[in-house]
Design a protein around this nucleic acid. Sequence first.
DNA 1: GTCGAGGGGTTACCGCCGGTAACACTGGCG
DNA 2: CGCCAGTGTTACCGGCGGTAACCCCTCGAC
Lengths: 204, 204
Amino acid sequence: MTLPLPDRSARREALLEAADRIVQRDGPAVSMASIAAEAGITKPILYRHFGDKGGLYAALAERHTDRLLAALQDALAGAGTPRARVERTVRTYLATIEEEPQVYRFLVHSAEGEAASAHGQVRSFLRRLSELLAVGIAAELGLPAGAFRAEIWARGIVGMVQAAGDWWLLEGGADREELVGELTDLLWGAYAEGVRRSSRGGGD
Amino acid sequence: MTLPLPDRSARREALLEAADRIVQRDGPAVSMASIAAEAGITKPILYRHFGDKGGLYAALAERHTDRLLAALQDALAGAGTPRARVERTVRTYLATIEEEPQVYRFLVHSAEGEAASAHGQVRSFLRRLSELLAVGIAAELGLPAGAFRAEIWARGIVGMVQAAGDWWLLEGGADREELVGELTDLLWGAYAEGVRRSSRGGGD
DNA sequence: GTCGAGGGGTTACCGCCGGTAACACTGGCG
DNA sequence: CGCCAGTGTTACCGGCGGTAACCCCTCGAC
């Protein structure tokens, strides 16, 4: 391997996959030593690659976050009536957290306290999702970027779906379609009210 | 003091107040040693009183949770139109988290990971709030206790307000009344849609 | 071939945490 | 006086995140 990036990058990728395995097996509260053991190396190598625990968590979260956000964006931006798009997005979210609950727990739980890396804040999954949604909502309602209303709505909607999904997940995870229906109704009601109010005037 | 509870209870109260001071000063991630130092004693006494860190956190959270839940219940159950009651409840919630952000952070953050006491799960603030709201919603919609819809709604509503409030708080905390208005609109729209759908049939 | 230089890897450590065992002090009681 | 119970302390354990110091293997220069 005499590539521009000899094997640093591949090594890093392998380490992240090892970390991923161990997180999926033992949950998000995992020690650096156990990750290193899973990767067949020792701690200092991990630290040379990622700086500190926050750095590793951030790198690990970024991969999953990118993937999940892309899926959600596709679901929301696809074809269909607005209501169908909302429903599809909710379904995508719930299906993902049901299929990979450990990943989901890691993403939601990691940014709180654990993953405050030394160099710069880690924009967590929920934060990035909210930011994306805020842009979409502002566009949908004809509000300027960064409008207070759009920001609040995005945070509120994300929080609603996250909280409901969280409860549903640890309650057993049955009846996914029923949950999709309920959440879509809730969001749709809120959305309709918002459109009504927004078209009535008062942007920011 | 020759009361039925000699001074065990008073001592415990004093320890909790010391813990409260130190949490309000240093945030929710506080060591047992520093709490003990603030109380003027050493660690083993703390452990004799509360078992483990989770026990102390649970006792500390319970006081604040009881108080906050009572205030919210009063706000929701008071006089006025349904919309006014929702608005008043949201305002109460936001005012509280604005006035005591450290307490709020402690309540929301503590139950996640840190405060899993050895003897029994700690029903966190958000969980208790959701349970209360679920009962109220089920009654309001004429659904049986524990109905899936009421549970989902309660979790979703709590999550929405919590997420929006959280963002607003760390974004500077300006314009509380505007946030109250936005959240009330959102919740009201969702609620109206739900009533419509619920009266149309389909309970659980 | 021999010798340095360098870098990937390890061991062994630090300080802090939650949690606990074992000991010291002090007062009542026969 | 000896004894006991309770209360508080010191001193420790294992494990964590994080790091310093060393070790050894390779590679190029002479």
